[in-house]
């Protein structure tokens, strides 16, 4: 019996389908840490956090910065939904730096109506994008 070693993956955001194709391995930022998905994985639906998404294709490795979302593994395919997914080489570093500064300032100022959770999340997103863009 021949085992299949690759599987179809789809990365979907509200701005469109970012990636679709056959891959060997996906590494995603799960709620309790990074985990990988290989072919013939058991059906799974998992929450993701902001972090780095690594995809191994026949043509090489692709890295994306994603902002949370979830992954759905079914016997037929793997779908990854996130509100944003940016390929590492298209991250706008000045914009990420700006967002980082804004979030830091907001947290430092500590205004009364500050939404701490949201600012923290914004900070995490900006840091994540910068880290991935600079290949750390």
């Amino acid at each position: 019996m021949s085992e299949q070693h690759d599987f179809p993956l789809e990365i979907v955001t509200p701005s469109g389908v970012i990636f679709t194709g056959r891959v060997h391995h996906v590494m995603v930022p799960g709620a309790d840490g990074y985990f990988g998905v290989l072919a013939n994985h058991a059906p799974l639906t998992a929450v993701l956090q902001t972090g780095k998404l690594t995809v191994d294709t026949a043509a090489g490795e692709k890295v994306f910065a994603i902002s949370g979302g979830f992954i759905e593994v079914t016997p037929e395919r793997v779908a990854l939904l996130s509100e944003t997914a940016e390929p590492e080489n298209s991250i706008d570093i000045p914009r990420a730096e700006e967002a980082l500064k804004r979030a830091q300032e907001r947290l430092a100022a500590g205004e009364a109506d500050l939404d701490v959770d949201r600012s923290r999340l914004a900070l995490a997103r900006a840091l994540n994008r910068m880290r991935i863009a600079s290949h750390e």
Binding site: P14, P43, L44, F70
Partner: peptide, 28 residues
């Protein structure tokens, strides 16, 4: 139904984190 599907961390947490995505998507 996706039988015997693993939910991580669990179905309730998962739904709680998906519902805001749904609202944001509706607004979009």
């Amino acid at each position: 139904s996706h039988n015997e599907c693993i939910y991580e961390p669990d179905a309730v947490t998962l739904l709680n984190s998906i519902l805001p995505l749904h609202i944001n998507y509706q607004l979009w």
